[in-house]
Design a protein around this nucleic acid. Sequence first.
DNA 1: GCTACGAAACGTCACCGATG
DNA 2: CATCGGTGACGTTTCGTAGC
Length: 256
Amino acid sequence: MVATIAETDESAESEDVIDSHKRREILSRRPSYRKILNELSSDGPGVPKIEEEKSEEERTPPHIATMAVPTSIYQTSTGQYIAIAQGGTIQISNPGSDGVQGLQALTMTNSGAPPPGATIVQYAAQSADGTQQFFVPGSQVVVQDEETELAPSHMAAATGDMPTYQIRAPTTALPQGVVMAASPGSLHSPQQLAEEATRKRELRLMKNREAAKECRRRKKEYVKCLESRVAVLEVQNKKLIEELETLKDICSPKTD
DNA sequence: GCTACGAAACGTCACCGATG
DNA sequence: CATCGGTGACGTTTCGTAGC
C-alpha cells in the first residue's frame, strides 16, 4: 500500500487494521478443496475423488470392537483401565461407564494421527529423561520403559517385543502444554477457571494444529489432481487437433 | 566447515460457514 | 447463538544445496 500522508503511530496502526480487513475482504472464501475436487471429478475423467477418510485405519470406525487387540492392560489406583494396543493406541476406560461409552483413546506421538472420533484425553510428551509419558485422569502417568523405547521399532516388530509401560505417580511438573482435565462442575477458584481456560486454549490449539496439517495435505492432493487433470486435458487436446487435421486432409484432398 | 538462500513444513491467528 | 471445523495469511523453523 502506498501512503503519501505522514502518519502518526496511531493512524499507522489503524491503517494496518484497515489493510488487514481489506485484504481479508478481497480474499473471497472458496469452498474446501474436497468440494472443489469432487466437483472436478464429477465432470471429468482422470481426477480421483478425495475420500472423506484417508487411511485404512481411518476408514475403520473407532469402535471398540474394531480397535486393535490390547497387548497390555493396566489398572490405575482409581480403578481406570488402560489398554495399550498395537499401533500405539492407549485406551482408557472407566469402570463405571458401560462399554464403548467409557472408552477414551490416546495416541502416541510417533504413531500417526488418532482415529477420527477418538477422544484424546491427554497429551503425550517426552519427559526430561527422554521417556514418553501419558497423563491420565487420576493424576497418574503412563511411562514407556526406557529399554524398550530405545529399541528401534523395526527391531521390536521383528522380535515381537512390545514396548512396556509403567504406571507411576508423576515425579515432575506437567510438561509445557499439558493441562490436566478438570470436571466442569468442580471449577470454583479464579485459578481453576484460569486453568480451565488454558486447557481449552491448549485443546483448541492442538485441534487447529491437526486441522492445519490435514488442510495442507488436502491442498497438496488438490494441486496434484489439478496437475494430472491438466495433463489429461493436454493429451485430449492434442488428439483432437490431430483428428481435426486428418479430417481436413480427407475433406480437402490435394489437387495437383 | 560456514554462510546464504529457497523450499517445505509448521504453528498460530482470524475469519467464515455449517450445525445443533 | 454458541461451537466447531476448514482454510487463508503470516511468521517461524527445518532442511537441503550451492557458493566460498
